[in-house]
Structures are given as structure tokens and as C-alpha cells.
Amino acid sequence: MKEALKHIVVAGGGVAGMEAAGALAEMGFRVTLVEKNNDPGGHLGRWHALFPDRRPADEVRHYLRKRIEHRNINVITGTTVEKIRHHGHEVAVDLSGGTEERADAVIMATGFDLFDARRKEEYGYGIYDNVITSAELEDLFNNGRIVKADGKEPARVGFIHCVGSRDEKVNNNHCSKVCCVTAVKQAIEVRKMIPSCEVFCFYMDMRMYGPYYEELYRESQEVHNVNFIRGKVSEASVNINNRLVIKVEDTLAGRPLKMELDLMVLMVGMEMSAPGAKCAAASGLPAGINRFLETADHHFGNNLSSMKGVFYAGTCTAPMNITDTISHARAAVEETVRYLNRR
């Protein structure tokens, strides 16, 4: 006699959610993937080429899309997971619109939000035309042209690291991990698209923690002539020519430095996603440091929540890159299966 398939709800259809859903389906479980947006994909949907090797983001998107094309997977889009609660042996999942899903287990993969750069007012995002975020630069890459607000190409671009990360003033003490290497990747991209354009990265520390990252950094200097200035930009203004003027200390030279820029790119950090946090709060899942979800153990229980049958995957627990997100999602699947088998 064939037992009814065990059912798992995956909350959030980003990299983590798609990978987890695919892996579970492959192992013969029935999966419902709930995504708030109209399409699954999460933030990856917006990126152009990926670090560390600058492969087109499309390739990873394609892989993930294929991954969830499985008869065991039911994808519900345009729907938010609002609350997770116990219901007898099962877990009940409340969805927006008042519907409910019953499952044997739930994987939270609600991901991250980009830091709202308006909260760092001194950088002038939303006030000056030519201040954009790293995500908006990806949009420009996808459009194939890098232009200022007046439609012309910039002659000098500055990347400002750690915007909304490592900053007590915006209540985020954590490092977002991916923005240093993203800045290097984007700097190379800009140099390749506009060879005459000067590019500067303003950093506090270069955190090149992954394989090929340091090499990418090296390449950016050796091949692409990207400039690095160690110092936190304190403020930006515009001059009469409508050019941006930033103030920074060149901490290695030990002197304040002023520079005009045509385009200023804010490397916005990662924060716990708002709908994810709302769902966690409603379900009684505790938030940990810097408001990301707290896992049961930082070493050997990093996919476990405090609630039986609920598991975590991806950047809802901490900032990470796609590689780590996929590994984390697979680990969450492993924990889920172990839980279901033991029950």
C-alpha cells in the first residue's frame, strides 16, 4: 500500500525556496511553494551577471526554474505566508487571502530586503538625481546602458560600500557579506562598458571571503584599473554643475578628501525581509541578532527553528551569497527529511 505523500510548505520562492522545493520534490515529497511576488526567483531575478565569475544570472535562474518544474510541486504566487502554527500532528500555514495549507513540515525561505537608502539621508538618495543603489545599477546593466539622469554617460563613478550595514546609526551592526564583492564585480562591469570612465570604490574593509573573490579584486586592479580608497563617505552634496561632491577621509593617506562624481552607487546591505519578519513574529519565531531569524544552534543546528516541524533556509537567517544559500537550502531539506522520517 502506498502511503499518501508527505506534504511540505516552502514559504518564499527565492533561491533558497526554489532549491529546497526542487530537492524535496525529487525525493518524492509533495511541495507547495508560496511566493509573495507574481513570479518566483526572489532577488536573483534582478541581477545581471553574478560574482565571482560573472556568469549571466540567467543561467542560475534557468537552473532554478527547471528545478521547480516538477509534478510534485505546486507553486502559489502572489500570496504571502502570514502565520505558521501547530495543528495536531500537522503544521497549519495561514496564507494571505484567508486560505490555509496543512503540511507535515514548513521551510521558511523568506529571504532579505534591500536596505532603504533613504534612511542614510546624508548620501542624498532620493534627493539628488545621480545617486542610485547597487540594485538599480543591475537594472541599468540589464538595460545595456549606464547613464546619468540626463541620459549621458558618466565620466566618473563611485561605489560606496557598507550603506546600511556595519552602521549603528541605522540599527544594523552586521556585515552584509556580498556587497564588497558585488562592488568589485560592478566596478569591472562599468569599466568594461565605458572604458573611459574612472571608477572608485570607497570601502572600510574589503571582505573578499569566498573562492575567487580575492582574485576578482586583484583582476579589478590589474586589468580594469579600478581605484580603491579606504574611508567611509560621510556626506554628499551637489555643486553648481550639478555634479555630486562627496566628502571622505582617505584614511591611508590620513587626510580628508573631496571628490566630484557623476554617478554614485550605494552598496545597500541586506536586512531581514519585512514580510518574513511579520510572519515570524505572528508565529512566535524569535528574531536574533540584527533582526534575522534566530537558529537553534549556530554550528550544528543552523537550519532549525524553535518550533517543531519548521526549518530555515537561506538569507532569512543571515546574509549569504547564492552558493551558500543553495547549500543552506539543501541542508534544510536534509533536516526536514530527517524530522519526517523520525516522526
Partner: peptide
Amino acid sequence: FACGGCAATCTAGYHKSFNLRR
């Protein structure tokens, strides 16, 4: 952590060498 933000914004440092980070 020696980021230099203070030195960059410093009113006094604009006029004469004064650098809090240093």
C-alpha cells in the same frame, strides 16, 4: 574601527589639520 567618517565630516578639519580618526 578607523573608518574615517568623523575626519571626513569634521568642521575643524576642513580648515586646519585635525583628524579624529588619526
